[in-house]
């Protein structure tokens, strides 16, 4: 059982952990501060930036004017949500099969699916690039959604499988005895029971898709570029404009950061991939 710990000991722990936590978080905090500064102020020494400069929203406006943030934002939303939902639709039946009707091959199939994640994207970059070029999918949201769906499918299947495994098979059998068809069993019993697990899976995949930067950089140009590519366009020489770079960065990561914080509990569950109890 938890033992009583002295306030002094607790304070020491808090100080150490707090300092380290703050250091981890500092880069994000720093660009948040810089994003509200003018370019001249942003490159001053850190203490001066903090204590002797004003605040402004100009950088945000400048970023939107320069490269149409909202277009990239909506690309990111469509691609990450689209690929996650599509992935779930394919993965739910597969995970159901493996969790509730296991066969001799189940474990092998699962390992094989996971092993497709081992295939380095760069190994298949050229063919995918050429296929996309020839089918007009290059620089399209559809193309990117397809790639990200397939890329994250093994993880979605894996996670759902671990969550489904936790649901006692007897409950599904009860539904079957109660006269539910397979569709009704999945719809009315399995899905509602697995909602926490599905939420975690969804969250994690939205984050992975949102932050995916290999395919998004290589398969898009102007039209379908999501925020990862939008930010990449700020590498030098614009990178020297700290305030604008900060504003653009904050705009790119804020949606996920906020979503992540509000759903911390589900996310922790998701992040552990159900593999750690």
């Amino acid at each position: 059982m938890a033992r009583a710990v002295s306030t002094k000991q607790k304070s020491i722990n808090t100080a150490i952990a707090g300092t380290l936590g703050f250091l981890m978080f500092f880069p994000i905090l720093w660009i948040l501060i810089l994003s509200f500064k003018t370019e001249e102020d942003a490159i001053r020494a850190p203490l001066e930036v903090l204590f002797s400069s004003g605040w402004t929203l100009d950088s945000f406006a400048a970023v939107q004017a320069r490269s149409d943030y909202f277009k990239h934002f909506s690309n990111s939303v469509i691609i990450s949500l689209g690929s996650t939902i599509l992935g779930l639709l394919i993965a739910i039946p597969a995970a159901w099969s493996m969790a509730f009707v296991p066969s001799r091959h189940t474990k092998n199939i699962l390992m094989w699916m996971l092993s497709t994640k081992m295939l380095p994207p760069v190994g298949v970059l050229v063919p995918i690039y050429l296929i996309f070029r020839d089918t007009g999918l290059l620089d399209s949201r559809t193309g990117l959604t397809i790639v990200l769906t397939l890329m994250n499918l093994p993880i979605i299947v894996w996670m759902l499988y671990t969550y489904f495994k936790e649901i006692p098979g007897e409950i599904l059998e009860a539904a079957r005895m109660d006269g539910a068809s397979l569709r009704e069993e999945v719809l009315y019993v399995l899905t509602p029971m697995a909602i926490p697990g599905m939420a975690s899976t969804m969250l994690l995949n939205i984050i992975l898709a949102w932050n995916e930067a290999f395919w998004t950089l290589n398969l898009t140009a102007a039209k379908a570029a999501p925020l990862t590519a939008f930010i990449a366009s700020y590498s030098s020489p614009e990178g020297l404009f700290y305030a604008k770079l900060s504003a653009a960065s904050i705009m790119a990561i804020a949606p996920i950061l906020i979503m992540g914080w509000f759903s911390q509990k589900q996310l922790v569950r998701g992040l552990t991939f159900g593999a750690v109890k």
């Binding site: 007897e170 009860a174 005895m177």
Partner: peptide, 30 residues
């Protein structure tokens, strides 16, 4: 489902996301 039998399981196998009323109603709803 077509055998007209009802079963009570060792773990009871109640649907945790449904109220008692909905649990009891489930076979009739089906």
């Amino acid at each position: 489902a077509k055998r007209g039998l009802a079963m009570v399981f060792q773990s009871y196998a109640l649907y945790p996301h449904m109220s008692v009323r909905k649990n009891i109603a489930f076979p009739m709803k089906m």
